[in-house]
Design a protein around this nucleic acid. Structure first.
Length: 1070
DNA sequence: CGGGCCACGGTTTTT
DNA sequence: CCGTGGCCCG
């Protein structure tokens, strides 16, 4: 046997033997018990990977088995990787021949090896968007009486629930019938449950009576789940029809093949003489069935080694997981060897004791089910280096959240600077990512390196958003020249194009002045187009740009891309654009180039995948897919490791599993973060306990395990902290786990106060971005003065300014072209048709209301005029909407209208120009003015049409909380002021109304009338003056900061300092 | 303890 | 928009 071994192998052999000798007794048992079933319960830090690999080595040494006769299954890629590395160091290249897989890669291998059975050739993985769309269609096809739809305003509300349910059903191997019977069992038992029985007499209820209403409520929820589960089969069928599959399917296919194709299973059963399963506490139902199939061949004595720690099971359904372990034990009890690994090589005894005390509060532990073995899980510190150190565990209570965060950062800085602890030996562990946001900001501002790994949606990144703007422009210009004009200005700001902000200002000033001039000459058709400007070298040279060549490059790049559109596949075109736009160059030169390149690749790979599914997909289609993803809040995820340099680790307790750090800080140890809020959280169905094998209190145990995992990451020092009062000064409740540990140890809570001087030091780190000044410089004041020369305040410009001065700057000063939204276009069409209706009356002086058909005809004509602003589908939708709403509206209003026609004069679409109030030029158009000429008091009534849902807030007069009043209220008062200062009439307007053109839920069209008081008028007059003054003072820099605000987002997206631009600028200065 | 009303938030993670 | 949990009252 030995003669073929090279010297190197012999060396490895020796190091392997040495490693074997160093094993403690428990470990030796786990490694040496090669034959028969073994269950190893391995607590944290007990050398799990070490044992698994040593055992593999041992099998190879002790038996005739070849490397390929050994199968080692684990949960994650990282697990596979770690195992392979360790094995390589033990046994050398032979390690590559051992079959180490994740469950998924193992199934994939089986499928690839038996394509004839699986017929997977033409199948493609299902994207998140496709999943959603399949489910949406499924829901749409259901009757309105379906439990998931009935009484539901949003027919798609349960989409997310269904996604989660179907995924669960697949991964746990549940059928609809199984779910159904579990629900029946649960409901049947409800009257026996304490919470569903009155505990004492109260009112008409007697002690011992079942709570009928509560039971009915649960039943209703369960019926929804039941109905949802029965949609599963159809979902699976549609997937198959569309030739799509997802991750969970791979496992199910293999399971099915194992059951139906005996030879296939037998094949693998005979090959794998030794099977090892890692992290058994995390295997789901389907995974555990795969293992069971593989070992079934060996009846009572399979050579299987299962290692796991039930106390570290932090994914759901602990009941089912413990059941898996127990089933495994009971099935092979006769020959089963149980090994309990207790020597911990990671932590100090103090840390282990505290962790121990905590986890003993749990009852759902495997040791409690294996009573007869009389085993007790205890962790004993066995690392000699660690034994020497014995830092105290600390519990710190801070006054508030800010203090906790500052205290933490201070402590870490001290550790690093004064004690020389490397930052990557320090971890901050929390329950949810959002808890780390503020700390990340502090680290950023203080320039302390940190690492944080989390899933990021690349579609939200400024770089990608800018790039998508460029793609959209190219796509639109290809479809129809000049249709991309409204995008051009924003596109210019894309960092990777290398255009300086000064030059953009120069170009925008030219465009704005040009527009101003042409508007005043009514030469709307002659407006200069961006596209023409950047290819007009003469004009460009007149502008004295800092970097003319960047603009010329941009022009060339856009032209080339549009030209390349037709003859290239989507990936080819994208590749060209990524290269020629400068995106790739920009990313490659960036400080965080690894990350940027990864982001670009993710987008590119996604485009390739989509093209594979749909070979004729073009750029427009691709952008449409991305748009639909955005609409449905589906991201394109990528794991981001922020700052790959060594730094403080910021991680969730979940992702801390398997890691270890010298210093661990568990933060925000509060009930709200660490204890389960509810069994049914988020957009998910609640499952009956009969299905998940979980019971009341199980969720708390799951959280306790998570906390335990976090604690056992610490090697030397463990610190818990929390804050006593939240932002609203409400007292916080600390997590019960803290108290559980305190109760059974001598540890005490220390109240910490952060020194005032330190607090002051942190003041400068601004904690809020709302209301921040924008970073993009405004145009030159002289140019702005010129542009606002003849500016007149209208309702919409005033409202825009009041809502967001930044938006005002872009929309009214720079006059950037924008496409009207589809809603706005529909509104215009309805408006215009109503105007024409009343015009007709006037024209023929009949005082008779024309027939409804007249109105509908106008509407159709007006929609035709707006057609360009709709896509094909939404045009039809909006047309149908109007054709349905207008007759109902007409019917509801006609009586009022007829009466008005008799009593009053009606003026529609009255333009009021050249009006001045308190020195401010104002302007506007009033939808409808009704003159009550025959009344003594000469008065008019104003009406404004609105399409859109009634929102009372918009109509509210000013309150102390909202001193400017609702938008619509302000608008009506503005109109009154406009009319009364117009001198077209001596009449006063005391009443005004918003006339809603969209019905409410009861099908009636609201007509909201307001009475305008002199106080109202003076408030709005003051607003008019102030707003005008602010505009004249160029106070545009502060945006509203609302997440939905186009221009705030634009500025936000482009505020990042960009090294590329700077180097470009330097190059030019030479 | 039980019910009604109102304000508020809306995980974690792997393949 | 839905469900939950705090809060108040009976």
């Amino acid at each position: 046997m030995a003669e073929n071994y090279t010297e190197k192998r012999i060396e490895q052999q020796i190091s392997f033997l040495e490693a074997l000798q160093k094993l403690n007794l428990e470990q030796q048992k786990a490694v040496n018990t090669i034959e028969g079933p073994v269950l190893a319960i391995a607590g944290p830090g007990t050398g799990k990977t070490h044992i698994l690999t040593a055992r593999i080595g041992q099998i190879l040494v002790e038996t005739d088995a070849q490397a390929h006769n050994i199968l080692c299954l684990t949960f994650t890629d990282a697990g596979v990787h770690a195992m392979r590395e360790r094995l390589l160091s033990f046994i050398g290249p032979e390690a590559h021949r051992v079959h180490i897989y994740t469950f998924h890669s193992f199934c994939n291998k089986i499928i690839q090896e038996h394509l004839e059975v699986f017929g997977r050739h033409d199948l493609e993985p299902l994207s998140d968007l496709e999943r959603l769309e399949i489910i949406r269609e499924l829901l749409d096809n259901q009757d309105v009486e379906h439990p998931l739809k009935v009484h539901r305003r949003d027919p798609h509300y349960y989409e997310a629930h269904l996604q989660d349910l179907f995924r669960r059903m697949k991964s746990e191997g549940w059928t609809a019938e199984h779910v159904d019977s579990c629900i029946d069992a649960y409901i049947g038992d409800l009257p026996n449950q304490k919470e569903f029985i009155y505990q004492r007499n109260s009112g008409k209820f007697k002690k011992g009576d079942p709570k009928i209403a509560r039971i009915a409520e649960v039943k209703k929820r369960m019926d929804r789940l039941r109905a949802a589960a029965f949609l599963f089969e159809e979902y699976a069928f549609v997937m198959q029809q569309r030739r799509r599959y997802d991750y969970e399917d791979m496992m199910l296919w293999v399971l099915k093949a194992f059951e139906e194709e005996e030879y296939l299973l037998r094949n693998y059963q005979e090959q794998y003489l030794y099977i090892l399963v890692d992290e058994f506490q995390d295997t789901n139902g389907a995974q555990s069935q795969i293992v069971q199939h593989l070992i079934a061949y060996w009846e009572h004595r399979p050579n299987i080694f299962i290692v796991g720690d039930d106390d570290q099971s932090i994914y759901e359904f602990q009941g089912a997981r413990v059941k898996n372990m127990l089933d495994f034990y009971q099935n092979y009890e006769e020959y089963m060897q149980v090994v309990l690994l207790q020597s911990n090589y990671r932590s100090t005894q103090k840390i282990l004791d505290a962790a121990q005390v905590l986890i003993q509060e749990n009852s759902l532990r495997i040791t409690n089910y294996l009573d007869h073995l009389e085993i007790e899980k205890n962790l004993i510190a066995a690392n000699e280096e660690r034994l020497a150190k014995s830092l105290e565990i600390r519990f710190l209570a801070y006054r508030n959240r800010v203090q906790e965060e500052i205290g933490l950062v201070e402590t870490i800085e001290h550790l690093n600077k004064e004690q020389g602890v490397p930052l990557n030996e320090i971890a901050i562990i929390y329950a949810r990512h959002k808890q780390a946001q503020q700390i990340i900001r502090i680290f950023e501002k203080k320039d302390i390196p940190y690492r944080s790994k989390r899933r990021i949606n690349i579609l939200e990144l400024p770089l990608i958003q800018n790039f998508l703007q460029v793609l959209t422009y190219i796509s639109q210009e290809y479809e129809k020249p000049y249709s991309g004009e409204p995008l051009f200005f924003e596109l210019l700001y894309s960092n990777f194009l290398g255009i300086s902000v000064q030059d953009i200002n120069c170009l925008s000033a030219f465009m704005a002045l040009d527009a101003q001039q042409k508007y005043s000459n009514h030469a709307y058709q002659d407006l200069t187009k961006w596209k023409d400007l950047i290819q007009d070298n003469t004009k460009l040279e007149e502008l004295n740009l800092k970097n003319l060549s960047a603009i010329q490059r941009l022009h060339q790049f856009l032209e080339d891309s549009i030209a390349a559109y037709r003859n290239r596949t989507l990936p080819e075109l994208l590749e060209l654009i990524i290269n020629r736009s400068g995106l790739l160059y920009y990313a490659a030169k960036h400080e965080r180039k690894d990350w940027y390149i990864q982001v670009i690749n993710t987008l590119f790979e996604f485009a390739k995948r989509e093209s594979l599914k749909n070979p004729i997909l073009n750029l427009k289609g691709f952008l449409d897919v991305l748009q639909r993803m955005e609409d449905n809040r589906i991201g394109l995820g990528v794991y981001k490791t922020l700052y790959t340099t060594e730094g403080v680790n910021l991680i969730t307790a979940h992702s801390s599993k398997g890691l270890e750090f010298r210093y661990v800080f568990i933060i925000n140890c509060l009930k709200d973060f660490w204890e389960p809020s509810n069994e049914n959280r988020g957009r998910r169905f609640a499952f009956p306990p009969t299905l998940t094998h979980s019971e009341d209190g199980d969720a708390l145990e799951a959280s306790r395990r998570l906390f335990y995992v976090a604690m056992t990451r610490a090697k030397e020092y463990l610190q818990f902290s929390y804050y006593e009062f939240n932002e609203a000064h409400k007292m916080q409740q600390r997590a019960c786990f803290v108290d559980e540990i305190l109760a059974r140890t001598k540890l005490k809570i220390e109240r910490k106060l952060v020194d005032n001087s330190i607090l002051v030091d942190y003041q400068f780190l601004s904690f809020s971005s709302v209301g921040q000044k924008q970073n993009l410089p405004l145009l030159d004041r002289a140019i702005m003065t010129h542009l606002l020369d003849r500016f007149k305040l209208s309702v919409s410009s005033m409202n825009t300014y009041l809502n967001c001065p930044l938006s005002f700057y872009y929309e009214y000063v720079l006059r950037l072209p924008s496409l009207p939204s589809q809603e706005a276009s529909y509104g215009t069409a309805v408006h215009n048709s109503l105007d024409r209706l009343f015009d007709t009356i006037k024209k023929y002086e009949t005082k008779q209301l024309p027939h409804i058909s007249e109105l509908l005809l106008f509407f159709q004509q007006e929609m035709e005029k707006q057609r360009v602003y709709f896509n094909k589908v939404s045009y039809q939708d909006n047309l149908n909407l109007g054709m349905r709403h207008l007759p109902l509206y007409y019917e509801q209003r006609k009586q009022d209208w007829n009466q008005q026609l008799q009593e009053a004069d009606i003026l529609t679409e009255k333009q009021l120009r050249n009006i001045e109030v308190d020195g401010v030029p104002i302007t506007g158009t009033i939808d409808k003015i009704i003159f009550y000429s025959n009344q003594q008091a000469k008065r008019v009534h104003l009406v404004d049409y609105k399409t859109g849902k009634l929102k009372e807030r918009r109509l509210r007069p000013p309150t102390p909380a909202n001193p400017e009043g609702g938008n619509y209220w302000r608008q009506l008062v503005f109109y009154k002021i406009l009319l009364e200062n117009s001198r077209i009439t001596p009449y006063t307007a005391q009443t005004a109304a918003i006339d809603y053109l969209t019905p409410d839920e009861q099908g009636s069209f609201p007509l909201k009338q307001i009475r305008i008081t002199p106080r109202d008028t003076s408030i709005v007059r003051k607003l008019i003056q102030d707003t005008y003054q602010n505009i004249k003072n160029f106070e545009f820099e502060i945006g509203c900061g609302r997440p939905s605000c186009k221009w705030c987002n634009f500025v936000d997206r482009n505020e990042m300092p960009d090294s590329f631009n700077n180097t470009e600028a330097e190059d030019m200065d030479d």
